[in-house]
Amino acid sequence: MNSIHDVGGMHGFGAINAEADEPPFHEAWEGRAGGILEVMTFPAGFTVDRFRYLRETLRPDLYLTQTYYEQWIYIAEQALLESGMTSPEELARGKARAPRREDAMRSDAVWGFLHDRAHSGRDLDDAPRFAIGQRVRARTMQPTGHTRLPRYARGKTGSIVSRHGAHVLPDASAHGKGDMRQHLYTVRFAAQELWGERANARDSVHLDLWESYLEPA
């Protein structure tokens, strides 16, 4: 989705303003929000890709103004609403109407959960299409759904630097097809390829791109 989140290469957002000694949470509610999103029961089939896609559906000016954990709350609300796990009335009142479930993650399970999320690549029956060192072009495509190919890289040519085996394809996983895997590659793009001849001649940007994002160059 070509939405406001895809900010790579944009100007105009001002200084970075890094905070010295920044606390993990600026307000207590941020900690609560962070915790909710980690351990709450999500709809069946909900994936981290859907999580990211829902964030991308935030109204653009709110995406730019709401703080990070405010946006996490939006995501939780959307996930619960779209699956029917809650209703607008329940959310507005902050009170449940449906009977209480008994299967929420327990506190003694949290540590194990947070440390048991291996994202390992797998093999596929199909061999990877591209070889290390091969020149590839990121396709020019404009999916209206979720993708991890930023606009600034589309149509640009780079080289395969590494291969990571097959990983879940976010473009499918965010939209209900949670187990589609494709070979994943790290591709190096020269800065001048991305930004033009005034960019530094030595610098490069690396992106991790799925096989369907690429074509031979």
């Binding site: 939405s3 944009m10 100007h11 991308e56 653009p60 404009q142």
Partner: peptide, 14 residues
């Protein structure tokens, strides 16, 4: 300038 004003092709504005 690659600002937000440069909107051609963007999604998500409704």
């Amino acid at each position: 300038m690659n600002g937000v004003h440069d909107m051609g092709g963007m999604h998500g504005h409704g």
